[in-house]
Design a protein around this nucleic acid. Structure first.
Length: 394
DNA sequence: GGCAGAATAT
DNA sequence: CATATTCTGC
């Protein structure tokens, strides 16, 4: 008897270990949840299965309960994510998943696909999106207090704001700090409701879109604009609407962003940086051998192909961020409310640019992304092996 | 003169 | 490194 008891105990322990292992596994996989909802499910199911098989020992039961608890948690999370995604549809979604995008989805690659090197980027490749990450996570400027900003201002109060430079927007009211956002003034939102100001998206620690209060000291150095997550999101959104970083112009972007206090120069600068960080990575290993074949993940004994590979191209062959966060539920990239300009002009521009690029920048694998309009898809410059655009049903 | 983009500067 | 500012050409 004793022996038996011992044996049971042993088994129990083993089982628990197993459970733990599984749990861990699931955690790992959860990272890919967005892309591979199926995998999670499978693992989870396996989980249940094992839990339910035999043993009714109290300990096991406890385990079971615990597990179910965690499961519920996961589900809840999933749901939350989903709802968030769907509810945001406007465009924020797009940017929201940028960080994840980098690892396997052909993200919205504005003019230059740069993506497709999936195989490796899984863990590395941080190069490209690194800066993005920083931008997104950047915790906007703390309140006032810090630094000498106020001091300087007071010293050089000069305040000869005769010309008023850029926009009239909110004048001083340094105190207002946040709270504003109202921005009732400024250009009327015209048509699209646009992003309802501070979208719940994340830990936006009470920071307004326009970054901060701008003092009147115009003769002075501009206060560094911090591109908060929100701001950047808008930026991306605008970009998306305009057809990519290569097509959009600072002014357009600024208009679309509808952030008061935001100047052209600021947008220009940001855009410059954006482009910079986006173009370079392209030249790198565009695709090795089979890289183009959508990676298959082995789940259980089933191969699963991440949904991103079903990425669709937007009519104008632009961003198409989609990023299929939850795979199946992938919200289709929203279209620009004002679809007017984005069509002809931009396409033309696109073509021109592509020509230019293909001409004097042979070294850089510029990409092709014009699928939508059926226009070119330059056989990607010279990158090693053929790149048969293996696009799943478009 | 405005604007966009690149090049510098901070 | 992230922005700002300046320089250029259109």
């Amino acid at each position: 008897m004793q022996f038996f008891a011992e044996k049971m105990h042993h088994q129990k322990m083993e089982f628990c270990d197993y459970i733990e292992a599984l749990e861990e596994e699931r955690k790992k996989i959860q990272v890919f949840n967005k892309e591979l909802p199926l995998s999670l499910e499978l693992v989870t199911q396996g989980f249940l299965f094992f839990v339910c098989v035999e043993f009714d020992d109290s300990a096991i039961i406890a385990c079971k309960q615990q597990l179910s608890g965690t499961m519920a948690e996961y589900n809840l999370n999933d749901q939350l994510e989903c709802s968030e995604q769907t509810s945001t549809e406007e465009g924020p979604v797009f940017e929201e998943f940028m960080p994840i995008k980098k690892r396997s989805s052909p993200d919205y690659d504005d003019g230059d696909d740069d993506e497709e090197q999936h195989s490796h980027k899984i863990l590395k490749d941080s190069t490209k999106s690194d800066w993005l990450r920083s931008v997104q996570l950047w915790n906007p400027d703390p309140p006032s207090t810090n630094e000498d900003v106020p001091r300087k201002a007071s010293i050089e109060v000069v305040k000869r704001n005769g010309g008023g430079a850029f926009q009239p927007f909110q004048r001083d009211e340094i105190t207002n700090g946040k709270a504003n956002n109202a921005s009732s003034n400024d250009k009327a939102p015209s048509s699209s409701p646009q992003i309802p100001a501070t979208s719940s998206t994340g830990p936006v620690t009470g920071e307004n879109v326009d970054g901060s209060s701008k003092n009147e000291d115009q003769g002075q150095k501009k206060k560094r604009r911090s591109w908060s997550q929100e701001l950047h999101k808008r930026f991306l959104h605008a970009l998306q609407q305009l057809g990519g970083a290569e097509l959009a112009t600072p002014k357009q972007i600024r208009d679309l962003m509808k952030v008061d206090g935001l100047t052209n120069d600021e947008v220009k600068s940001h855009l410059q940086k954006f482009r910079l960080h986006h173009r370079r990575p392209n030249s790198i290993i565009r695709n090795n051998a089979n890289s183009q074949a959508a990676p298959l993940f082995l789940v259980g004994n089933i191969f699963v192909q991440p949904p991103e590979y079903a990425a669709v191209a937007t009519s104008s062959g632009e961003l198409t961020t989609d990023t299929a966060p939850t795979g199946i539920y992938a919200p289709v990239a929203s279209h620009p409310p004002a679809s007017t300009h984005t069509s002809e002009a931009s396409i033309k521009k696109l073509q021109v640019k592509q020509l230019e690029l293909s001409e004097h920048s042979n070294s850089e694998g510029r990409a092709n992304h014009g699928e939508g309009a059926g226009n070119s898809n330059s056989p990607d410059s010279s990158s090693s092996t053929h790149t048969t655009t293996t696009s799943p049903g478009y």
